[in-house]
Computed example of a mutant assay.
Amino acid sequence: MEIVKTTKLSQQQIDDVQQLLKTVHHADQTYRSPYLSNQYNYLSEMPAFVLLYANHVLSGFSMLYADGELDEIVELYLNVLPQSRRNGYGTTLMLESEAILHQFGYQKFQYITEMNFLKSNPTFLEHVGLTAETDHEYQMRWQHSQYDLANRTAVKFQRLQQADIENIGELNALAFEMNIEEATRAITTAFHDDGTVCFVLKTLNDEDIGYCAVDNSTEYYLYNLFIKREYRNQGYATYLVDLIVRELSKQIQKDFVIGVDQTNIPAVKAYTKAGFKIETEVVYLQREY
Rank of each mutant, 00 (worst) to 15 (best):
M1G: 11
I3A: 04
V4T: 11
L9E: 04
S10F: 03
Q12I: 15
Q13N: 02
D15S: 13
D15I: 10
D16W: 06
Q19L: 13
L21S: 00
Q29A: 12
S33P: 07
L36D: 05
L36E: 04
N38R: 11
M46G: 05
V50Q: 04
V50M: 04
L51P: 09
A54I: 11
V57A: 10
M63R: 15
Y65R: 12
Y65F: 15
D67R: 15
E69P: 06
L70E: 04
D71T: 13
V74R: 06
Y77V: 09
P82I: 02
R85I: 01
R86M: 09
G88P: 05
G88L: 04
Y89A: 01
T91P: 02
M94G: 00
A99I: 03
I100R: 03
F104T: 00
G105P: 03
Q107K: 14
Q110I: 08
Q110M: 12
Y111G: 01
I112Q: 12
E114G: 04
E114M: 03
F117H: 01
L118F: 03
L118I: 05
K119N: 14
N121V: 00
G129I: 05
G129D: 01
T131A: 10
T134Q: 14
H136G: 10
H136V: 07
Q139E: 13
Q143W: 09
Q146C: 13
Q146S: 15
A150Q: 15
R152Y: 11
A154P: 13
K156N: 14
F157G: 02
Q161G: 08
A163R: 14
L171I: 03
A173I: 08
A173R: 08
L174V: 09
L174A: 15
N179K: 08
E181K: 10
T184M: 06
T188K: 12
A190H: 07
H192G: 05
H192P: 05
G195M: 12
V197H: 10
F199W: 08
V200S: 06
L201F: 01
D206H: 10
I209M: 03
I209N: 03
Y211P: 00
N216C: 13
Y220K: 07
L225Y: 08
F226M: 06
I227F: 01
K228L: 04
V241E: 12
L243Q: 15
E247T: 11
I252E: 15
Q253N: 13
D255V: 10
F256P: 01
V257F: 10
I258M: 01
T263Y: 15
N264W: 07
N264C: 06
P266G: 05
K269N: 11
K273N: 09
G275K: 04
I278Q: 12
E279T: 12
Y284N: 07
Y284S: 10
R287L: 09
R287T: 10
